[in-house]
């Protein structure tokens, strides 16, 4: 039982460590491959917004500001 508990704890610990290491070496495609040219809106949004109301806030705005954990595809 002790070996099992230690094994589970180690597996979770190594998994968490892997997540941090991979997160530090990965970027979104729109970050990795974006150009230096002008971009008029955030990726995933358009100028009029998803409901055509003029509110162009989209799902990637929070990610662009790095306020939440990045979500990878």
């Amino acid at each position: 039982m002790k070996a099992f508990a230690v094994a589970v704890i180690c597996a979770v610990a190594i998994g968490i460590a892997a997540s941090y290491i991979l997160s530090s070496s990965q970027r979104f495609a729109w970050q990795a491959f974006s150009t230096s040219s002008a971009r008029v809106s955030q990726p995933g949004t358009n100028l009029v917004g998803p409901r055509w109301t003029g509110d162009a806030t989209g799902p990637h705005d929070a990610v662009a500001g790095e306020t939440t954990a990045p979500k990878r595809s």
Partner: peptide, 14 residues
């Protein structure tokens, strides 16, 4: 021994 069981269970649970 303990290490053998540890490595078995770590691999198995994963």
């Amino acid at each position: 021994n303990g290490f053998e069981r540890f490595t078995h269970w770590m691999t198995a649970t994963c």
